[in-house]
Amino acid sequence: MTFDRTRLGFIALVAAGLVAPYLIYPVFLMKGLCFALFACAFNLLLGYTGLLSFGHAAFFGSAAYLSGHVIKELGVPPEVGILIGTLLGLGLGLIFGSLAIRRQGIYFAMITLALAQMVFFLCLQIKETGGEDGLQGIPRGRLFGAIDLSDTLTMYYFVLAVFLIGFFFIYRVVHSPFGQVLKAIRENEPRAISLGYDTDRFKLIAFVLSAGLSGLAGATKALVFQLASLTDVHWQMSGEVVLMALVGGVGTIYGPLAGAFIIVTMQNYLSGFGSWVTIIMGCVFVACVLLFRKGVVGELSGLLTRR
C-alpha cells in the first residue's frame, strides 16, 4: 500500500512538472526546480544523516562558476559543463567532508561554514569569476549538439529532467541499504558504531553525494540564468537552503521541494517590498518553526498517516 502511494506520488510529480510551464511562468519554475534540487541534496544530509552543513553554497556556487566558465570560455557543450560542475561539487565535498566529518553538531556546522567562506573569498579574488559583476552571458548552447536550449520551453524540460534524475537518485539513496545505515546513524550514532559500522565513512559518502548534487543544481542554475554570481557562493545561500529544507520538512522526500518553491515564490512576489523581504521571510520562518515543527510536508503527511 505504501508502495502504491509512493508510485502515485511520483506520477503526480512528473505530470505536474510536464504541464506546469503552460500554467506558470517557466523561468520561475526553472529557478524553483534548481533550488528544489539543491534543497533535496541538502536534506539528504540534514534529514537522513543528521548532519547540519552550513557551507553548501560553496558547492552550489563554485559549480555554477566553473560550469559557466568552461561553457563560455572553452565552448564545451552544456551537458559536459554541468557534468564538470557536478564533479567539482563531488571533489570539494570530499575535501570539506574529510576535514569536518569527525566533528559533531555545531562544530561540524562551523567547519563547513569556515571552509565555505574560504571558497567565497577565492571566488571574490580570482579574475575568472568576474568579481562583483559575476560571470555573465553564459551561452546555453545545444544539448548533445542537437537540441537548442535558448528556447525557454526546451530549457524548462531539460531542467525538469535534471531535477527528476537528481530527485529519484536521492530517493534511491534514502531507500537503499546504505540509506538504512544513514538513518540508523541519524537516530543513534553510538549504537550504529556498536553494531560495527564505521559511521564516519557512511557520513563522508553521504556528504560527498550531497555536495555533488548541490553542484549539479548550481551548474544547472548557471545555465538557466546564464549567470553565476557571488550570491551563489555567499553564506546567505547556505542559510537559505537550510530555510527551504526546514520550511518544507526535514527528513521528508517532498519537503525540500515544497520548501524551495515556497521560498522562491516569496522572493518573487514580495520583491515589491524591497529590503523588507528578509523581514517578512524571517517572520514566516519563525511562524513555520512554531506552528509546523516538522515543516509543511511533514505536518501534512503526519495528518494523513494518523488516520
Binding site: S176, P177, F178, Q180, V181, R201, I205
Partner: peptide
C-alpha cells in the same frame, strides 16, 4: 539504545545487513 524512528523490523534488519556486505550500496 534503539533507533527510535525506524520500525522494529528495520531496527533489527539494519544490524543484520552489515554481514550482507551491501551496506555501502546506495544505488
Amino acid at each position: 539504545a534503539v533507533f527510535p524512528h525506524l520500525s522494529v523490523r528495520d531496527n533489527v534488519r539494519v544490524a543484520l545487513q552489515r554481514a550482507s556486505g551491501k551496506s555501502f550500496h546506495f544505488w
